[in-house]
Amino acid sequence: MQSTLHGKVLWRMTLDSIRLRDIERKSWRTYQQDGLTDVQFGGLMLAAAMVAVLDQLGAPPWARIVTLTVLAFLEVAAIVWMRRRYVAPRLGTVKFAPWRVRRTRAMRIMLAACVLATASLVVLTSLSKGLGIALPGDVGAWLIVSAVILVPVGGLALFLDYPRLLLHGGLFVVVEFLHIVAKLPSRFPFGGAIAYGTAACVSLAVGIGVYVRFLRVVPRPVLAPSEPCEEDARAAR
């Protein structure tokens, strides 16, 4: 009876530690939360700050678009390199379950739709005078921009199981408020750049902090395909 109860307790403990949903969720979250996505957001806001500086210096629109595109491309390339060089060797490779793959595909479609919607808004705004379309006021414009930011960021936070992304989205929305409604760039010299720069610093500080912690907490595993030791062989039996 005692051994039966002992066995029961032992197996309850083992089964408690093996909750399939938790195992899957933990594996997924580990892959998303190395801090580099936060760094990516910070980098985007830093690029926006640099564009705001160019704006203040009176650079032509094409120069701003080229700067933003080049900086965004460089940033994505740097993030991909850091993931391959430092994250992948620590976490290994895994193909997630088909339902996760389907969700990721749905997320990409949603992001593409958001990019299309943003491009349509930009085109409509630039053609508004010719087409006789009345543009919304400052608050209306800010609300539209906020929706354009928060819908994809909220979607990403949900799909990636990554609520911290909402912090970055919220920062972006606050900066846009200062830009569009409070008219910061026209009130202070480099006001827009300072607002974007401050938000970028917050996002970058969060991201770099999480990334450094990740590198410290998750060491590279020792990959020595040697003969199993006696203890290992005994465990396998």
């Binding site: 899957e24 060797p89 620590r90 290994g92 193909k95 997630f96 595993p221």
Partner: peptide, 13 residues
Amino acid sequence: VVESADYVFLMQN
């Protein structure tokens, strides 16, 4: 819970 995984993933987890 996954489709497939490598040794590093299994060692870490």
